[in-house]
Design a protein around this nucleic acid. Structure first.
Lengths: 169, 169
DNA sequence: TCGTATAGTTAAGCGCTTTTAACTAATAAA
DNA sequence: TTTATTAGTTAAAAGCGCTTAACTATACGA
């Protein structure tokens, strides 16, 4: 078996494990919050990418503007997001998380952090160092595969920054 | 910043990148197949865990038996899964993927494989070796965190086997 | 200024998911 | 054997997500 073959195999194995776990948690958390997956995804998108318009949400979810508009409307009714007019182009709306919405996202992030902390405890510092290097390479490579999507300000250099958290000092 | 802190940060970063990508693909693929997320999840569960009953599906999705039963019924109508009586306990049903159902799952897996192949190409063999080691440790640690859930036959030793794909030969 | 494109909303309608409640059938326990 | 438990189905009702189509309002180009 060649190294690339093994690599792919290991990557697949890890991603299966990881995906199953993450998806389950995400779905569970959404349910507990009384939200659907699209709604939760929208909240996360807003949390990650700051403000955006209704059609951005539609694009994110792969649905029509009408669908996005209705979803947004529900989230506004729940007081999880705030919908205001864009002063420079009054056709557009600016969508932002309310404190209530942000709290939900934070809770979910905290839950994931707890899992990661458990994972961290199960791994020795020496192993952690090598994993840090490995994941940094992986993350940067994944980013480079689709420059448009990742990160908020998506107009700057790739491959160098972002995850360049060196361990040696 | 301590190593565990950095580790958690890097892990979080990678998982965000990876999750966003995977979720998007999964949702997209489900849509393209004309299936909902719960339906797709069910197919994957069956693919992964061989045969199971209706209530297992309910448990997986976190819904009542009634809901699971109706979902299963739809998938049976679509001829994606096969529902037969368990001969030893005739109250139970055995759910299995049909060829049609398996094909859909395989397609989705192929799609992910293609992404991973691209990722593989973006990484040098030397880097791959270190990542293989790192991910193997991570995967095993994650498995050990929840022994009940991972893997089909869940009655044997952990931490040693499963991902012990050594690179050195 | 007039026409067109863009951003978003609204309404009608359909399908899926979900729950509760009532039910059938088979097994296990008394 | 009688009773209780377990597995699953069915029906009714509600909610959400989605699409299409028709609409309002703003911005922009000729």
């Amino acid at each position: 078996m060649t190294i690339p073959d093994k690599f792919t195999l290991v990557l697949r194995d890890w991603s299966e494990t990881f995906m199953r776990r993450s998806m389950r948690d995400f779905v569970q958390f959404s349910k507990d919050s009384g939200l659907t997956l699209p709604q939760m995804s929208t909240l996360f998108h807003l949390h990650h990418g700051s403000s955006c318009g209704v059609s951005d949400v539609g694009e994110l979810l792969g649905v029509t503007n009408a669908a996005a508009s209705q979803m947004v409307d529900r989230l506004v009714q729940y007081e999880l997001i705030e919908r205001t007019e864009d002063p420079v182009d009054r056709r557009m709306k600016q969508l932002k998380l309310t404190n209530k919405g942000r709290a939900i996202v934070q809770d979910s992030i905290e839950a994931r952090k707890r899992w990661m902390a458990k994972l961290t405890n199960a791994i020795t510092p020496d192993e952690q160092i090598s994993i840090i290097t490995a994941l940094t390479i992986l993350t940067n490579a994944a980013h480079d595969l689709e420059p448009e999507i990742n990160q908020v300000g998506n107009s700057e250099k790739h491959n160098q920054a972002k995850n360049d958290i060196s361990v040696q000092n």
